[in-house]
């Protein structure tokens, strides 16, 4: 009997590495610490998308819009312009739930569509969400965004705990917030592991493999798909909340939440292996790690070359994501670390 599969060994190794990252001399290597944290947040985002695309097989192309909903939701709950001004813990929970509910509400009518039409409809939703976030300036701040999001960690009745732990104002700074994100990532990772083994998770996979056969076996595809959208979007909303708190504003919607962002996340999900949790970790850390951090390190090396667009890594960005999608689909459609199939 085999107790440890290869992918779980990889997962343990990756988490161990991520745990040690703050001890590395990041400053000397020229890696900005906020990018490392952002990478963790994007990993959570990819895990959320994986529930929708990987487990259930719904090609959702508008995940950036869902991410945007989570971010703006956090902005509204925290900013001084509105009377809420909640703490981080409360905001995290509310953002997760609200994003899941909004996403379920807008996706529910289109769940019966075929795969490719579903992809286009979600893409359309993403564009509409971006427009709404951009134009409803009184609520979302529009292009100016909601600024200065610096919530306390705990709600008021626990503020003495925050003081006694000496975290006031400090918890948002690099190592501590990084560990908060890492903890949440680990929590979601383990939660998804349990989900995969549960009745619901197996239902998701059954729908992906053959919807008709699954419904003949007594599963309710519509209900399960809606659940997958809810769980996935909830995780994405949580990532959005972390992103808002991390960057202390709700970033411009037409930059951060567009179709391109959706495809970039999709590329890392596909690189890692649809449906495989460990694959998500590896895919995001490789592809987005290269995009966010690797390019910085390499561009120093390349800066000696003449100043032409094709000598700059930034001008190859789309090409790399595009080639990842094409080549993975052609040669390894189940990703670097394929999901275990029994």
């Amino acid at each position: 009997m085999k107790y440890f599969s290869a992918s779980s060994v990889v997962a343990v190794l990756v988490f161990g590495l991520l745990f040690l990252v703050p001890n590395l001399p990041l400053g000397q290597l020229g890696i900005p610490s906020n990018l490392v944290t952002e990478l963790l947040i994007l990993t959570i985002l990819a895990l959320g998308l994986n529930v929708i695309i990987g487990y259930t097989g719904l090609l959702h192309l508008g995940i950036a819009g869902v991410y945007g909903i989570g971010t703006v939701c956090t902005g509204i709950l925290v900013t001084e312009a509105f009377p809420f001004q909640q703490s981080f813990v409360i905001t995290l929970i509310i953002s997760t739930v609200v994003t899941a509910l909004i996403s379920m509400a807008i996706t529910a009518p289109v769940l019966r569509l075929r795969g490719d039409y579903f992809a286009l409809v979600t893409l359309g939703f993403c564009e509409i969400v971006v427009t709404v976030l951009k134009e409803f300036e009184h609520i979302t701040g529009g292009k100016k965004t909601l600024q200065n999001l610096r919530p306390p960690l705990f709600p008021e009745f626990l503020s003495s705990l925050e003081q006694s732990l000496d975290l006031v104002g400090k918890w948002r700074i690099f190592p501590i917030f990084y560990y908060i994100c890492l903890g949440l990532l680990l929590l979601i990772f383990l939660g998804l592991r349990n989900l995969e083994k549960s009745r619901i998770g197996r239902g998701f996979v059954a729908i992906r493999e053959d919807e008709l056969a699954a419904s003949a076996m007594g599963l309710n595809p519509a209900k399960l798909k809606l659940m997958a959208i809810g769980i996935g979007s909830g995780i994405v909303g949580l990532a959005g909340c972390l992103f808002a708190v991390h960057s202390t504003n709700t970033t411009e919607p037409q930059v951060s939440f567009t179709f391109n962002v959706s495809v970039i996340i999709l590329a890392s999900v596909i690189l890692g292996g649809m449906g495989s949790r460990t694959g998500m970790l590896v895919g995001v850390l490789l592809l987005l790690g290269y995009d966010k951090i690797g390019t910085r390190l390499l561009s120093d090396v390349l800066s000696q070359l003449p100043d032409k667009p094709y000598f700059k890594l930034s001008s190859w960005r789309y090409m790399i994501f595009g080639l990842v999608l094409i080549l993975m689909m052609r040669f390894r459609p189940y990703g670097i670390i394929p999901e275990k199939r029994n």
Binding site: L266, Y318, L325
Partner: peptide, 18 residues
């Protein structure tokens, strides 16, 4: 069916880059 669709997204990105 969804495999060529994802490839098409990839081609789109490559062409954008060109």
């Amino acid at each position: 069916r969804l495999v060529p669709l994802v490839s098409a997204l990839g081609v789109s990105f490559v062409l954008i880059n060109v």
